[in-house]
Write a protein that binds this DNA or RNA. Sequence first.
DNA 1: GCCGTTTTCGGCCCGACTGTTTTCAGTCG
Length: 576
Amino acid sequence: MKMNNADYARLLSDTAALIEISGGNTFRVRAFEGAARTLSKLPVSVESIMDAGTLTSLSGIGKSIAQDLISIRATGSFELYDTLRADLPDHILDLTRVQGLGPKKVKALYDKLGIGDLDQLEAAALSGAIAGLPGFGQKTQDNISREIERLRRVGGRRPLTLALMIAQPIVEALRALPQVQRAEIAGSARRWRETVGDLDFVAASDDPEAVMAAFVALPGVQEVIARGPTKTSIILAGELQADLRVVTLDQFGALLHHFTGSKEHHVELRKRARARGLKISEYGVFKIDAADGDPPVASRTEADIYAALDLPYIAPELREAAGEIEAAERRALPALIELADLRGDLHMHTTASDGRHSILEMALAARAFGHTYIVITDHSQSSTIANGLDPARLRQHMLDIDAVNAQIDGIEVKKGIEVDILKDGSLDLPDDLLDELDFVIASVHSNMRQDRDTMTARVLRAVESGHVHAIGHPTGRLLGQRDPFDIDIEALIQACLKHRVALEINAGAGRLDLKDEHARLAAQAGLPLVINTDTHSAEGFAQLAFGVGVARRAWLEPRQVLNTLPWDDMMAWFAR
DNA sequence: GCCGTTTTCGGCCCGACTGTTTTCAGTCG
């Protein structure tokens, strides 16, 4: 059985959860969690590190866990994990997904009532058996019933794009309150994580009670699940949870920082603070022996917080405990790309295939957006459902693009195609016709369930063809709808480097493909990327921001993204 | 179980809120 880093990481994090439920040492739990996190963020395969014999050089992996990993490779498991598994029901970890149930309560439910999965938990709550347990009561039982129902309805995390559509009007409503001096979206949405579990808002005000009252009165609030003097949690229509914290303006930076996370970033920062005789809370950075009422060392802005720890400001997108604190320490943080750095969009559709607007309409909208060039890349003939272009229609399309260029200034409209990579890796249009175009994006749109070797060979054939500039949405995933197809990303990156083909970060709200880790991997290998919307309408150019979010999470600087360059400079990279 | 400018032992991030309790444990982020 072939195991990847995520498989190893999952075994370790499950082990952490099982130790916790069985009442083991908290710090041992944290050790397994830390090791799991290290593996899940590792840019190379853990097995290659095993082969090199340097496992214990990884942060959070000592002798013991290194042995466990070696055992996992050989047998698929390790002793501690097997022992814990044997002592507890198979599905007990599902119980911790219920909001309000942590390890202690799960353990009590199992010990006292033999509850080992969600169905048994639901039945016990319904029968009233839970309310009688020590430490549990009627309210806890009701909450469990409600949370199980909610879990069954919505499951896990929502796409960022959807969450932001809900969060934007809320933050604007908060800002519009006379009592509010500042309000921001925090949490994983501010870090541009591709999915979010809930929404976090922070606000500065001298009258928190008024802000809370307005928050719970927002349209679409289904339920108030917690309400204290500084913190309120609500459930919005659509089952999304939203939390709001309010502090005074001079504490706002500390609060924003605290609520932006990630949790792991904070754990590392707080360790660093302790080593300097400081401690960090949502109210600021304090001397470790500070008494109540002592003023903070820093609290007003996020930059002040970092400065108090002798660090430069770290952008939210980097706060994932993925090496950013070390990089900050070395003053080696990337100068992250921004939306304004992009000069053009290399992937879009018009009414010639499955888009909603004409070449002219797209060009005018792109110019208004601020682009200086775009490439029109309609579908090729095999994508019949998308009205793909055959050679004759493509030739007419090229003439139509010339006509638009003659008609408007301020933007160059380039001729391109999104050519299908067919089942066997051949391209969907004749080579000589492709070579007449300014820019060729090759994408997989069919037979997506090929096995890893077949799919990798298929896309590599397109990369090696000599007629392609970029690979579009390289893993084919649709967020929440379709898994990525199985392809060897590392092999793809190497082939692209050799043949001077760029990989796309497709900014389409439903795609975000490549994803952040893969984009970072490509850039680390020296391969530049392109960020495109793949928009099918004139309103879609703004989605580029989502692609920039992915790029920033991938630590990309402008120089690593080709469409930050003027057209001719960009094309120079492809010269072969 | 991991780690080390407090280094091979003794630490390991911090506070808000709920619910079940009469002073606090558990959970969450």
